[in-house]
């Protein structure tokens, strides 16, 4: 797996801060927010420095009941080519439902919703992933999402579901440690147990993000600082596998550059400490 290093989610609001942050090896951009012929100049500047840029899609809905839309797949492929990206990433989620097969009008969620961990959902997801892989010019990695709701009558653990997905499609994994923390608080799923069950040999990179707990529910806000428990999940992951890359995500309430640099430093420290422990 290609080594990416430490990165940050590129957002227009913090373009100037990112350009000046020391030790940023790569960035990820939300694919739907890019126009391939008209990349933001600040992003072009980073590319000019030789920085890797990975497009991260949010609207394919590969965990949905429908086959992925060819137009959306072509758009993601076009962005991968425009950015000369080594891989593209998306989510294990559904984002829309309704439409002809259901007798209900089409509905958009506007965000990522969890897929039931059932054999039906896994069969559909695997076929959708293979369709996506055929349409994309570079490898695909998929991210575990944060869930607020639990599906009743699930048939598999997250580890079993992801293992089946990787075995059947060869897709790579983007593991979001903040989402594992979310599932710990909201669903009582121990991150250590979840990580033990995951096919970490397929790991492409790791997401780290901040959130906030309200009334016993963890909100994966990407608008708050990264907390210790999330870094502890990162440490637990690094004790089991060496991630090719780790990326900080911040989407709202952007802090000053110094705070972002501090969070990147904390992430780097966790990764390096694990590497040191491995070498010792």
């Amino acid at each position: 797996m290609e080594r990416l290093g430490t990165g940050i989610g590129w957002r227009p609001e913090i373009a100037a801060e990112i350009a000046g942050l020391p030790g940023v090896d790569w960035v990820e951009v939300v694919a739907e927010n890019l126009c391939p012929g008209h990349l933001p100049p600040a992003l072009e500047e980073l590319r000019g420095r030789g920085m890797t840029v990975v497009p991260h899609g949010v609207s394919l809905g590969l965990g949905g009941a429908e086959r992925p839309d060819p137009g959306r797949l072509a758009a993601l492929a076009e962005r991968a080519v425009a950015l000369d990206a080594p891989l593209v990433t998306e989510h294990i989620a559904f984002v829309r439902a309704g439409g002809p097969p259901t007798g209900s009008p089409p509905l958009e969620a506007g965000h990522l919703l969890p897929v039931p961990r059932t054999r039906d959902a896994l069969d559909v997801l695997c076929e959708n992933v293979r369709i996506a892989q055929d349409a994309l010019p570079v490898p695909l990695a998929l991210e575990n999402i944060a869930a607020l709701v639990n599906w009743p009558a699930e048939e598999m653990t997250e580890g079993q579901f992801l293992t089946g997905l990787v075995e059947r499609t060869g897709v790579r994994l983007l593991i979001d440690v903040a989402n594992l923390h979310t599932n710990h608080v909201n669903r009582g799923e121990d991150p250590a147990v979840a990580l033990d069950g995951m096919p970490l040999e397929a790991l492409a990179y790791v997401h780290v993000a901040g959130g906030v707990e309200r009334d016993g529910v963890w909100h994966d806000s990407h608008a708050h600082p990264v907390t210790r428990p999330v870094l502890d999940v990162l440490a637990a992951l690094c004790a089991r596998a060496t991630p090719p890359g780790v990326l900080l995500e911040r989407d709202e309430d952007f802090p000053e550059a110094g705070e972002l640099a501090g969070e990147l430093g904390a992430i780097r420290a966790v990764v390096e400490e694990a590497r040191g422990a491995e070498a010792a």
């Binding site: 949905g64 829309r96 439902a97 309704g98 097969p101 259901t102 509905l107 969620a109 039906d120 559909v124």
Partner: peptide, 12 residues
């Protein structure tokens, strides 16, 4: 797909 579509549509 049909079963998943109904379940996801009911939730959404």
């Amino acid at each position: 797909r049909q079963r998943l579509a109904l379940a996801q549509t009911a939730l959404l």
